[in-house]
Design a protein around this nucleic acid. Sequence first.
DNA 1: CGAAGTCTTGACAAGACTCAAACTGGGTGG
DNA 2: CCACCCAGTTTGAGTCTTGTCAAGACTTCG
Lengths: 269, 269
Amino acid sequence: MTLMHTISPLFWCSSCPIRDHSICGAMIGPQALGELASARSSCRSFTPCDPVYAQGDRVGDAFVVLSGWLQLYQVLEDGRRQIQRFLMPGDLFGAVSASQQDIDHSAEALTQASICVLPTTRLTSLRQRHPTLGNRLLEAVEQTAHEAMDMVTNIGRRSATERVARLLQHCLDEMRRRDLVAPDARGAQLPLTQVTIGDALGLTSIHVNRVLRSLREMQVLSFVRGTLLIHDEVRLDALLHGTEQHDRQGAGFVPDKRMLRTVAAPVGR
Amino acid sequence: MTLMHTISPLFWCSSCPIRDHSICGAMIGPQALGELASARSSCRSFTPCDPVYAQGDRVGDAFVVLSGWLQLYQVLEDGRRQIQRFLMPGDLFGAVSASQQDIDHSAEALTQASICVLPTTRLTSLRQRHPTLGNRLLEAVEQTAHEAMDMVTNIGRRSATERVARLLQHCLDEMRRRDLVAPDARGAQLPLTQVTIGDALGLTSIHVNRVLRSLREMQVLSFVRGTLLIHDEVRLDALLHGTEQHDRQGAGFVPDKRMLRTVAAPVGR
DNA sequence: CGAAGTCTTGACAAGACTCAAACTGGGTGG
DNA sequence: CCACCCAGTTTGAGTCTTGTCAAGACTTCG
């Protein structure tokens, strides 16, 4: 039950390696699933660095990741790159609604990957016959928006250390929810390099390197050559949720009116 | 025709001050519009700083801004604040799909504002009878996600100067598209303070102040006490799109602050 | 008038970036 | 087997951008 909401299992066809795909059928109904399966124009496979589409293309399909990781990113005129989203099995991307526009980002594979192609037009007409599918799509896109906002907060207001730690923890969480690792796994293989992490967090890879070293030395976590290991989950949470001050507090720090002002409004929780 | 896509006119009721609301009716059909209008449970009015909902609330409504500006923001445990989105007339926010979760951000008015309340449940059932409405909703939410990604790139990969200039230009553009100012307006009144801008861009208000001064001295634009004026659109575009590199100053020397004070203080006195 | 919220400025500190160089491990081809 | 290359990683030194702290000035409003 929870799984449905967590892994956004929009659709996976028979070739999808993920178990429990029946959940999806149950959610949108067997008939809709059948039609959706036939609406799929094809499945495509990729090896690392293969592009799905590129900045400036006109894209008329939505995609669902069946296996592997992909990334969405934008490159500015002068070469600066920002990764906007990592994609894992079950994720939806591309042109979901029919608002025809050139796309402003690129999509490419990070690992061996396969995705399912759903032409937007077919998806639109299908949605009209199967409102439940429409619900799922809307939820998925709303979730995407929500995650992007989260990223804004992460990049805008957190220190480099917090950003890196948070991203890595987030990746592990997502893998757990998708059953890509055991639910109690304390580590995983992530197809990320220091450059990738930097481009996702608005940092240089060099600084990412220093941050990783510091996290390692703090015995919080280590990320070496794609292998993530959480050493101290408690201190990691403390680092991320500020329940504990790590090295940041200087001499007698007193949160006074300045803070009270911003926090003055009810902040539930 | 173009307008439909640009201002995301999801819905406005008779009390909405915006002209051309007929466009919206034409888009989703008169019957759907009628039903949507009756689905609206109420309209609410706000004065600056009034909350619509707060972090931690359970929200069961979607909202459409009828007039005024609002902001969505998140406050971290230690008081750091990140504004995730500014809302202007026509914008949709709140719980559009029925994925029940506590909300992780707050919404509050920046100006006098009125919004239309659409209970999510009614919206969901209405969508099933009027697929075109579903299309519009999906497009709107996808657009939101897209704009959030844009924000990620802006904050992650652009300098403080670029960020500020971009935000101000973006606000003016949005106002133009919504007919809140003349299409050829070179300035506008924005309900933003330097603190607000900082919180939206991941900067401190003090640094925003420095950046604004520098933009003013560069004769690109001025933003004084809520009044935006674009002085040199060409150089602004150059600054933002890198067709030219803004030689901030040849050597890394502090810009001379004594001069150009006249340009700096055109107001008041 | 005072109070609160803004804006402005300066001096300084810290965080993050740049440049440059060296190291690693895995592949490749001779 | 080795030399070589390559992408990724590591480290250091120096610089620049941005944040912090502190204080003063200006506006608005009751």
